[in-house]
Design a protein around this nucleic acid. Structure first.
Lengths: 155, 155
DNA sequence: GCAACTTAGTTTCATAATGCAACTATTGGA
DNA sequence: TCCAATAGTTGCATTATGAAACTAAGTTGC
């Protein structure tokens, strides 16, 4: 092989998501976008990354439908990068990553921020996995099954 | 710069988790480990990755305290790689990645598996974010705050 | 209207990471 | 003891990453 392996055609949903999000910078760009950043320069400043890498990543994220370009909201002729619904849908992934650090990091005192409920200012609860009927599930209480063939979609 | 940037000293908990998990293969190795794989050859076969990369990743995961080596359970002199509690703690991250694909993938019909509640065989519910008091939270209803200084830990 | 500055990139070049294939060293089995 | 399987390591080619320099629009002051 020669190029970095792509998981695009993989049947595993985790591999497929990593194909879009699994590099060092993409999730951090999305994190900043969720925080309200929109402009090339804002991302570059905040993340301190090389501009060529940023340009490449932004293009890839747009290609994946995670970001979309839009005319700048300040009336200038520049463009902005805004999250699509698919992009905003990564929020639980970021929360899961954050909570994993909070729980298992070797030097938790170096973690600068916590995620709180805006109304009360209290920490958000740990994400929990629940069954359809609401039962709390541990990993051992779950399993992976072949996806049932989906019904014909329309015509 | 010269090396790929590390997020090890970063104060953001998301960056810190990506420092350990943010490459193309690590989360897939962990996925297989959660599934029960333990041996070098099992990972190599299942993931189809180059052996040198696998060796590098396994070492890194052990260094990060996500995997630990143990004598082989079949009595042979080989060793196994088993998940630590920190490693098993990544489960919600994998679930979040999976659910994101299920919800937003452009070709969902290519996804081969679904995660189900073992008891009922029914799909697991989407992860939800809740406040301490149980209120369901949207991203907009959360915010990031500076971490309060923690109390002295013992002596 | 134009010089100076800002913004958003692209280009160039060096270095590191990735991937395949071939090789090695134990271990296990007959 | 000999052979195969396991678990790697090494060598080499290609790609990705990163810093810095460069470029080309867009904007601003005058």
């Amino acid at each position: 092989m020669v190029k970095r392996t792509s998981f695009e055609g993989d049947a595993c949903p985790i591999a497929r998501s990593l194909d879009a999000l699994g590099d060092w910078w993409s999730l951090l760009i999305i994190r900043e976008a969720l925080f309200g950043l929109r402009r090339f320069g804002e991302f570059q400043n905040k993340l301190g990354m090389a501009k060529n890498i940023l340009a490449t990543r932004l293009r890839a994220l747009v290609d994946h439908g995670i970001l979309a370009t839009a005319p700048a909201s300040d009336g200038s002729a520049y463009q902005e990068y805004v999250l699509t619904p698919k992009g905003r849908g990564t929020f639980p992934i970021l929360v899961a990553l954050r909570q994993w650090s909070e729980e298992f990091d070797d030097r938790p005192e170096e973690i600068a921020t916590i995620l709180v409920d805006r109304e009360k200012g209290r920490p958000v609860k740990k994400l929990e996995m629940r069954a359809e009927d609401g039962r709390l599930l541990t990993p051992a209480e779950t399993m992976v099954k072949p996806r049932p063939a989906s019904r014909k979609k329309s015509a």
